[in-house]
Amino acid sequence: MSDSLLQVKDLSVAIEEGQILHDVNLTIRPGETHVLMGPNGAGKSTLGNTLMGNPVYHVTGGQIFFDGQDITRETTDKRAKAGMFMSFQNPLEVPGLSLESFIRNSLRQQTGKPVRIMQFKKQLEETMALLNMDPSYADRDLNVGFSGGEKKKAEILQMLMLAPKFAILDETDSGLDVDAVRTVSKGIEEYHKRSDGALLIITHNAKILESLAVDYTHVLVKGSLVTTGGADLVQKINEEGFEQYIEEAAKANE
């Protein structure tokens, strides 16, 4: 436990409509890249949201440790300050709040210090260039009128600017064209390189993983982690699908 960054112990999670996750265990060490796969409705996003502290999801059992601290009951902003980040599957639109000012405010909150404007602007410009984002997006209202691809790039931009210790990417590649996937993937690589950040990548798609060195792959079925493997598991699932795991899970329940 001492060398783990994130440790999830016997985590069970429910929403108002019912139980979703059952006794999930997961350990992520600094700099590791984990991939979470599973059929639709398995609870992948629930896990991501619960780790980030979304109040819609209630922890009914188990614990979450981050950097040695029990954060199971911690508020979302405190988790972010501790070094967690999540790229949202559907980033929210906030009219009247510019992307730049959002990132600047977030940085200020996280560091507890005023942001040095010139340095910040330069870094923002460079990072946007890396992500093939038009600089005009910095002044635009957060996600308002952004295309699906621009929204996802804006999420990766935030990740690069905030440089968290651990980032959850919740279907960051879904609905993106090939070029956008390549750009996002480049951004993830950069994050990995710059800050040796750990990753939990929730995805359906192997394409985004092509240029990343995956350490572990987990398969989630009906709220339970049914198997964990290496990078090769991604390839296997891509070829064979989840059939085998769904059947196994059904048998285990009998």
Partner: peptide, 29 residues
Amino acid sequence: SDEAVFYLMSRGIPENEARAMIVSGFANP
């Protein structure tokens, strides 16, 4: 929206500030 508040909080912004930012944004025009 609670989701928007959660979104802002996930970047380290405390809840009351997140709400104030959404409201300031609304008032921005």
